[in-house]
Simulated scan of single mutants.
Amino acid sequence: MSTAYDLTGAADPAAAPGPAPAGAGSAGAGAAWAAADPYDDAVRAGRGPLFLRRADGWLLPLEVERWCARADPADLGILDRCEGTVLDVGCGPGRLVAELAARGRAVLGIDVSAAAVAHTLGLGGQALRRSVFDPLPGEGRWGTVLLIDGNVGIGGDPLALLRRTAALVVPGGLLIAETLPVDVDERAEVEVVGLPQAPGTGRVFPWARLGTPALLGYAGREGWRTAGQWTAGGRSFVALRSRSASSSAEPPKSTAVISSQWSRYPSAERPVADR
């Protein structure tokens, strides 16, 4: 039986997003996900086909069935490494949030897709329809942030995403990210489509694809240090440690911050996976 934590600081986690705040940077890219009907439809159905498509027609299959299934052994290996309270950025249908909640961990998922947030809530997890670039509950107090299923690509600007993540975790906090199992560092404009030849949605947004060497290079520039690298189930992962306030910084605590201390901001954005 999972422990109940109020991590949202919001009365209606699935409320429609408001306008992005000034200076939100890459947050606008996520609005395309929120409006991408093929994605919401696939999540509600629990299956694809679903793709990210570049302007030149190149397709990236999205693994909707895996996202909608229970956490697999590779996922469980990620969750075993989490420290303190956990923020799952681009939580999708919520398999990781639900598994952590079932373990009694304090965890919150954020996603711009209404269908993804609803699915996560239905699994018993806590989730907000919100962008990683928007103001979030508990900023600077998360023990671990997750960027799984290709969500290192959010916004198409890895440096901006790493800076934002650093502002979310405690000093010395942990970022666990999934990378591509090949050496790639690519930025592109993409859209979500349900079929390879489906008409364009007109909602194009920036995305990035990173292998481990590329992510480690960007992370080093932003002051993150490598805490681990591993592969599981054909997938690749990196754990990064943020700057500590001092060399003797205490490890993050697993207790939840009470909700009255956390902000309430409606907003939007949707990261998903890429492979």
Rank of each mutant, 00 (worst) to 15 (best):
M1Q: 12
D6S: 14
T8E: 13
G9C: 09
A15V: 13
A16F: 02
P17W: 09
G18Q: 13
A20K: 06
P21W: 12
G25F: 09
G28F: 09
A29E: 15
A29D: 12
A32K: 01
A32G: 12
D41I: 02
D41R: 15
A55V: 08
G57R: 03
G57A: 04
P61E: 14
P61G: 09
E63D: 14
C68W: 02
R70P: 01
A71D: 02
A71E: 08
A71L: 05
D72I: 04
D72G: 06
L79K: 05
R81N: 07
G84V: 00
T85H: 03
L87I: 11
G92Q: 12
R95S: 03
V97R: 01
A101G: 14
A102M: 09
R103A: 12
G104S: 11
V107E: 10
G109P: 11
G109I: 13
D111Q: 11
A114L: 14
A114I: 01
A114P: 01
T120D: 10
R129H: 09
P135Q: 12
P135T: 12
V145K: 01
G150M: 13
G150H: 12
G150N: 14
V152Y: 00
G153F: 06
G155Q: 10
G156P: 07
L162E: 00
R163T: 09
R163A: 12
R164M: 08
R164D: 08
P171D: 12
G172D: 06
G172I: 03
L174E: 03
L175C: 01
E178H: 08
E178V: 07
V182Y: 11
R187S: 10
G194F: 06
G194C: 08
T201G: 13
W207F: 14
R209Q: 15
A219F: 05
E222M: 02
W224Q: 04
W224P: 00
W224S: 01
T226K: 07
T226W: 01
Q229S: 06
Q229T: 14
T231I: 03
G233K: 11
G234D: 10
R243W: 05
S244Y: 05
S248K: 09
P251L: 14
K253C: 12
V257H: 08
Q261P: 00
Q261S: 13
A268C: 02
E269N: 13
E269T: 03
